[in-house]
């Protein structure tokens, strides 16, 4: 009953999301694209969090993917469509190499290194002036995907989101769910049950990084340019993180809820208080962390859980 209901909700939400360009104008589509982009990043951040590792490197891998995509096109002569999977590949491969170095680190040491990673990518790209365009960035002169059609770009972003949701669903319903949860709860115990901790962390890090790179690749196709300041913006780390925390972590649904709420609130605030919206936004995040540490989803589960307990 409950499962059927959530299936119906998910299917209708999916149908509305697909059909949106048929009845919505450019502005709502633009907002929706933004929200979906952040939503997908929030989901990937949560996927790695399920192993207990807090990454601050989302913007780094997103930006790396963005530049891989645009440079693949402009310097490598790739067709636009190919630059997107190429962006995912580059980010995933970079994560694979870096993973060998950093996945033995834990807690804040891991977080700090992932934060530094983004800065390193940004500085390298900033300084390779001849190849990357340096601080002024690089523009796709011609051949941008779908000729810039806003409804097709919307569907492209929706596709990126679908990849993130599918991967997250796979993470929730396969062996990797058990591996990551066990690692998060107790690494010693996990080892004694035959879990190769390093291997599973590497899988999670590479998969989430590749998706973040993929989204970066989609982002540059949508806007037709990349500069170090835009694609490595701290927003790409902080907003997804806040969305996942608001919605509720360790699930696919939590970050989705959080992204819709915060994404729409942020957009509305931007219109109401153009210069102060980030302050209000920050206050919301602080209130959530203080009063709903498990996010909205955690609060809902708590309430319904109690009810189930009473009837049982």
């Amino acid at each position: 009953m409950n499962r059927n209901l959530s299936r119906i909700i998910a299917l209708s939400a999916g149908a509305i999301a697909i059909a949106l360009p048929l009845f919505a104008g450019d502005y709502p589509l633009q907002v929706a694209r933004n929200v979906m982009m952040y939503m997908a990043l929030a989901i990937t951040w949560d996927m790695l969090l399920r192993s207990g590792q807090i990454s601050f490197g989302i913007a780094g891998l997103f930006g790396l993917g963005a530049y891989a995509g645009i440079l693949g096109m402009i310097r490598g002569g790739m067709p636009a469509w190919l630059s997107i999977p190429f962006a995912a590949f580059v980010a995933g491969f970079a994560a694979f190499l870096i993973g060998f170095m950093i996945l033995r680190l834990r807690a804040m040491y891991f977080s700090i290194v992932t934060l530094a990673l983004g800065e390193i990518f940004r500085i390298i790209i900033h300084n390779l002036h001849d190849f990357t365009g340096g601080p002024e960035g690089i523009v796709i002169q011609q051949g941008v995907i779908f000729g810039g059609s806003s409804s097709k770009l919307y569907w492209l972003t929706l596709g990126g989101l679908a990849v993130a949701i599918a991967a997250s669903y796979w993470f929730e319903h396969s062996k990797i769910h058990f591996a990551l949860t066990a690692i998060r709860n107790n690494e010693t115990s996990a080892k004694s049950s035959g879990i190769d901790i390093f291997k599973w962390l590497l899988v999670a890090f590479v998969v989430t990084s590749a998706i973040q790179g993929l989204l970066g690749g989609i982002f540059v196709q949508s806007y037709g340019f990349a500069t170090p300041e835009t694609v490595f913006s701290a927003d790409f780390t902080l907003l997804p993180l806040a969305m996942a925390l608001l919605g509720g972590v360790y699930s696919t649904v939590g970050p989705i809820f959080g992204a819709i709420l915060l994404g729409l609130v942020a957009e509305w605030l931007k219109l109401k208080i153009p210069y102060g919206h980030l302050v209000v936004y920050g206050i919301i995040i602080i209130l959530v962390i203080l009063f709903m540490p498990n996010g909205l989803l955690g609060r809902i589960r708590q309430t319904t859980g109690k009810r189930a307990g009473r009837t049982a």
Partner: peptide, 9 residues
Amino acid sequence: QLIHPLENL
């Protein structure tokens, strides 16, 4: 010696 249940499972 110290019990180690995996509390999220």
